[in-house]
Write a protein that binds this DNA or RNA. Structure first.
Length: 211
DNA sequence: TACGGAACTCCGTTACATCA
DNA sequence: CTGATGTAACGGAGTTCCGT
């Protein structure tokens, strides 16, 4: 359909609304009838049998409603009547539009919230994987370190005066261990290992020594 | 204070229009 | 023609407010 035709149809519809303001509410019961309302039934061929119905609001009406919705999502009675009279709609239509708009807004908001949470969840999963890998690596290193300690202590059994422990300890007192080396603070109970792929900054190194 | 009714909300659903 | 999608409108249940 062309734009001109669209405009023509819209104009026609607007005129129609002004001429028959009650048309779209004819199926709506009065407030007192609320409790005896029945489920709507299919109305096959209703539109083709001369009983014209306007299903879509005009662009102008929607724009005006959107503007009002942007200001305030809730709709007080006075405001509803005002908007309805401004747009030539039934107040009930305005109320229904706001209700549906709130529902759309809510579901959109939920979708956005879901997307955000999904991103956070994905990054947490990645971090968890990384930490699990790190734990495995550290366990391996710990096992190696324990083996090395055992080996050194076995060797030191014969040479007590010049033990590797004391020499390692002396080395630590002078220089921090290079990456991939063992360090010892206050004896064998505090042997630690600096992996080659682990960056330890000067500050962190200081904390290690403060332990 | 308790109660009933009007008027509102939300949720789920239905009916219809439109489009690919 | 048909299925998917968007949206106006409905039905029901719950809540709030107000008069009696």
């Amino acid at each position: 359909m062309t734009t001109a035709m669209n405009q023509q149809v819209q104009d026609h519809m607007e005129l129609f609304t002004h001429m028959y303001p009650g048309l779209y509410t004819q199926a709506m019961p009065e407030q007192g009838e609320a409790k005896v309302r029945r489920r709507r039934k299919k109305s096959k061929g209703e539109s083709s049998s001369g009983c014209a119905r306007k299903r879509k609001l005009s662009e102008e009406q929607v724009t005006h409603l959107e503007l009002n919705f942007g200001n305030e999502h809730k709709l007080e009675s006075e405001r509803k009547d005002k908007i309805a009279s401004e747009l030539g709609l039934d107040p009930r239509q305005v109320a229904v539009w706001f209700q549906n708009r709130r529902a759309r807004w809510k579901s959109k908001k939920l979708e956005e919230e879901f997307s955000k949470l999904k991103i956070v969840h994905e990054s947490v999963v990645v971090e968890k994987c990384r930490l699990e890998t790190e734990v495995l690596t550290l366990k391996e290193q710990l096992s190696d370190a324990e083996k090395e300690i055992r080996r050194l202590s076995e060797r030191s059994d014969g040479v007590s005066s010049n033990s590797p422990t004391s020499s390692l300890s002396n080395a630590v007192d002078v220089d921090p261990p290079f990456f991939g080396e063992f360090g010892v603070v206050d004896g064998l109970d505090n042997v630690f290992y600096i992996p080659e792929n682990n960056y330890v900054s000067g500050m962190e190194w200081g904390y290690l020594y403060d332990m």
